[in-house]
Design a protein around this nucleic acid. Sequence first.
DNA 1: AGTGCGATTGACT
DNA 2: GTCAATCGCACTA
Length: 211
Amino acid sequence: MGRADALKPNRHEGGHSPLPRAELPVDTVSLARYLIGKILVREMAEGVASGRIVETEAYVVGDAAGHAYRGMTPRNRSLFLERGHAYVYLAYGSAYMLNVSSEIAGIGAGVLIRALEPRDGISIMQRNRQIERVRDLARGPGRLATALRVDRRLDGLDLCREGPLWLGRGDHDPGEIGQSARIGIARDADRLLRFYLRSSPFVSGPRSLKE
DNA sequence: AGTGCGATTGACT
DNA sequence: GTCAATCGCACTA
């Protein structure tokens, strides 16, 4: 990406202004579905990278698989922020996970962003991931975070405001949304709280979960 | 203060 | 398809 691109980060249709918080659905499952097709924008010194959200998971109130299940701790406190804030944590000692807080202030719940279809700043993402293949740049929650350089420093950020990381409107109707069990969890594993774009090759997870 | 465990990934058979 | 690396954190004592 050249210098002109970095100077005009918001020229693309759809990504030009953050989603107003009032437009975000007030419950976690609705938000998880709503975020499919929306744009995630990362602004860095070297330029802007963005992608279309194609896969999410809901971690609802009272969910034994959710990090907020046993109450607020130093790690998970961002989950208790008003909907539309970032909760970022390190999983398995190596992969950062990006979540969007999803309820009113004081209630802990969130939506995990699991995969993106890369949009702008692809060369930046390729550098961050040390791979070329566009399909694999952000297919999976840890890969997504690496591609966009998301780490704990972004924890607690308001994603409904311009800044280093924010949510933008999608360009058009995303297409048919599928639903399945969540990936990689042991507790409350049967609930169908994963959402994904059926037509997208940028979705993670085994084929068997896709129906 | 010690311990067990993941909302994963990449390397490998 | 299988499997181990890796480390911050929550939990126990």
